[in-house]
């Protein structure tokens, strides 16, 4: 459903993405791992076009979207994103955060939007916190609101950029639980993470990306326990405890 072909991206003279290709089928959960600076976040951002690729093509449901004629806002409605630093709107309550996209982007009337927001917050387990401001929530709770906010747009796929990296250890579980449930329900997901447990449980495929290229691709079993490439081996060795 999401297809990326031969993406190149330069930041100045820095060649961040060097011809990456990726294919994610509907309902698949793909996890991307790799060292810092390997271009994983940039890759994600090329999919929902927060970053424009210099070369290559991005397809969502067989439509090429990185053409100038395609409205970027439309693309981002199709694909939701969850960020490492949550990026909740600090001046709005949890409820209002989730509702904002519904009322302003989709044009849904307030009561409908409120009902839907309530439902989503309940789904991520935060029904009681709907009137709290982000500053009053723990990191795990904030990230779950962020997930609800992204889900509110009814996206066809979700992108997760290191969703648990900024969390205190005791909050990681609750966020991963929400993501696992989401995957089981059949949401197409691309997750950049270092949580190997989650990856082993949920991912149908793991991609190891280093220095802007896909080094290895395979099932969690293959990549974690029988890596074929040397670089994969050394990286996995460092992070698997």
């Amino acid at each position: 459903m999401i297809r990326v072909e031969g993406i190149h991206k330069y930041f100045g003279t820095l060649h961040v993405l060097r011809g990456i290709s990726l294919n994610v089928a509907k309902g698949e959960a793909v996890v991307v791992i790799g060292p810092s600076g390997s271009g994983k976040s940039t890759l994600l951002r090329c999919i929902n076009l927060l970053v424009e690729p210099d070369e290559g093509r991005v397809f969502i449901e067989d439509t090429q979207v990185n053409r100038p004629e395609v409205r970027r806002e439309w693309v981002r409605e199709q694909v939701g994103m969850v960020f490492q630093s949550f990026n909740l709107f600090t001046h709005l309550t949890a409820m209002q955060n989730v509702m904002l996209g519904l009322t302003q982007v989709k044009g849904i009337p307030k009561d409908e939007a409120a009902a839907k927001a309530r439902q989503l917050l309940a789904r991520v387990g935060l029904a009681v916190k709907e009137n709290s401001y982000p500053a009053e929530l723990s990191g795990g709770q904030q990230q779950r609101v962020a997930i609800a906010r992204a889900l509110a747009m009814d996206p066809k796929a979700m992108l997760f950029d290191e969703p648990t990296s900024a969390l205190d250890p005791e909050y990681i579980r609750e966020v991963l639980d929400v993501m696992t449930a989401l995957a089981r329900e059949g949401m197409t997901m691309i997750v950049v993470t270092h949580e190997m447990g989650f990856a082993s449980n949920v991912a149908s495929r793991i991609l190891f990306v280093d220095a802007g290229v896909v080094i290895e691709e395979g099932t969690p079993e293959e990549v974690f326990h029988h890596p074929k490439q040397e670089r994969t081996r050394s990286f996995v060795g460092k992070i698997l405890r």
């Binding site: 600076g37 994983k40 976040s41 940039t42 927060l50 250890p169």
Partner: peptide, 16 residues
């Protein structure tokens, strides 16, 4: 800044 429990990972290539 919000204090981080784990050491900050080096950022990915800067997004414009």
């Amino acid at each position: 800044e919000r204090p981080r429990a784990r050491p900050l990972r080096l950022p990915e290539a800067p997004t414009p």
